[in-house]
Amino acid sequence: MPRLLLHPAAKPLLFVLALLPFAWLVVGAFTDGLGANPAEYLLHATGDWTLRFLCLTLAITPLRVMAHLPALARFRRMLGLFVYFYVVLHLLSYSWFDKGFDVADITKDIAKRPFILVGFSAFVLLTPLAATSFNRAIRALGARRWQALHRLVYLIAGLGILHFFWMRAGKHNFAEVAVYGAIVSALLGWRLLQFLRKKRPLPMLVMRRQLSKQ
């Protein structure tokens, strides 16, 4: 398993896999395959995939520690960037299909509706994380500050779940919200436990250095 994870094809393979949902949506949109309300389908699907990639990204560290698979660290950045990729598509779907790119209307909507405000805040907070994901940014910021900045992801995850919860609250439909909520709580809860036990996992940056030496 560790050897497979270090295989040179592993990253390109993950990249292609992570693009599959997008490809599937594009094909669906052009072949009338997204049901009676394709705009709503795209909006919901891109939101779902944002949450799924967020869960995957947050799962990397607990998995690497519990399963003793340090090589998993190689994939975290790419998964994190796919969170941003799908949230951009989500925002684009909303702005385009729901609002016709009417900036005044969008601004009014963000100010007026808490669930839109929460979702938009999560997007805004995620932007500096995506923007500082390359190695030079890490060096420029310094590892400590970079890591502090990237802890924002815990807040972003909370906002994402709240956004989803509030959206579904309109129709009392919480089954899926509960699933994502439970996954994110478990992943963040694990970190909290590690913190309380003072058994901190090896920071990812140290991890990277060790891996690059291998």
Binding site: A36, W96, G100, R113
Partner: peptide, 23 residues
Amino acid sequence: VDHPRWSQATERRIGEDGLFAKR
């Protein structure tokens, strides 16, 4: 009168409008 979570000023007509048509 808006729903607390969304506007009721416009609607999307199912099937008739293309994906990029205005509400």
